[in-house]
Computed example of a mutant assay.
Amino acid sequence: MNTTIETLLSHRSIRKFQDKALTEEQIKTIVECAQAASTSSFIQAYSIIGIKNIETKKKLAELAGNQPYVAENGHFFVFCADLHRHTLIGDLENKDVTESVESTEKFMVAVIDAALAAQNATVAAESLGLGICYIGGLRTNIKEVTELLHLPANTIPLFGLAVGYPAQDTAIKPRLPYQHIYHEESYQADETTYKKQLEEYNQTISAYYHERTQGKRADTWSSQMAHMLSQPKRMNMKDFIHRQGFAKK
């Protein structure tokens, strides 16, 4: 096993960081690694907003549901789906790109591009001995986040990435069984097998929580997911992305 694989398999979310800022060299390295990620048709349909100002961090923490580690970290990155520059390209090259920019396909490309870039950034940060935590809570008040960061049309803040020096050591959370995720040749949809795998995974997760919390928690993965999915949230997302000029077609 090489060091890259060891880094990937050692991933865990860090929610408490030391009071130590990243250096400019670290930030640049992380962003350059993000840019090295694959991008569909070389479209590079994302932007990254770096946040150092503590007041801006505190406001983002509030908008993300009062998550303290949004404010208390070494550096905070916001990954955005971005087709704004491509509208400028249309002007520059005297081409009408509106239909493509407003298509659902290009919205998917922008989201995928941003996610790939963010994962590269994560691996880079963790390889430097830093910890990270993805922050999807920015979408809870997505309009306010967009206004705070002065994002133009055809951009959307997808998620944040808190990066810093870990001030805690957390256990690796067990993932779903390999056989549940990886299908050969076609989707294996035998429900009896699927449910059996879920029940086994529930036992693993319950034991993980029991040990991590000294017996204060022992819930299962399926109970977590059922509870979460039975309470829809951020149901304004479709209207918002349309207002920003995405996925209109």
Rank of each mutant, 00 (worst) to 15 (best):
V163N: 03
S47M: 05
D96N: 08
L22K: 04
V109L: 01
D113K: 01
E25G: 05
S38N: 11
A167S: 05
K249E: 13
Q26N: 02
T56L: 12
E102A: 12
L8S: 01
T7V: 14
T3H: 13
I89K: 06
A21K: 14
L198T: 07
K95H: 13
D239S: 13
S100E: 11
L138M: 03
I89V: 14
Q224L: 11
K143D: 15
I142H: 01
A37G: 01
P174C: 07
A121E: 05
T170Y: 15
Q18P: 08
K195N: 10
T104D: 14
L92G: 11
T98M: 05
F107D: 08
Y187S: 08
Y209H: 09
P157L: 01
A64H: 01
D96W: 02
K58F: 11
L63C: 06
Y201F: 11
E144H: 01
L92K: 08
Q188C: 15
A45H: 02
K20E: 12
A207N: 15
K173P: 06
V78W: 03
Q26W: 02
F42S: 13
A125C: 05
D82W: 03
Q18L: 11
Q119K: 06
Y178Q: 13
K195S: 06
A226K: 08
K238Y: 10
L22T: 05
F79N: 05
D19I: 14
N66H: 09
Q119D: 15
T104I: 12
A37V: 01
M1C: 06
M108K: 05
T146W: 00
R234G: 04
G137Q: 04
I181H: 01
V145W: 12
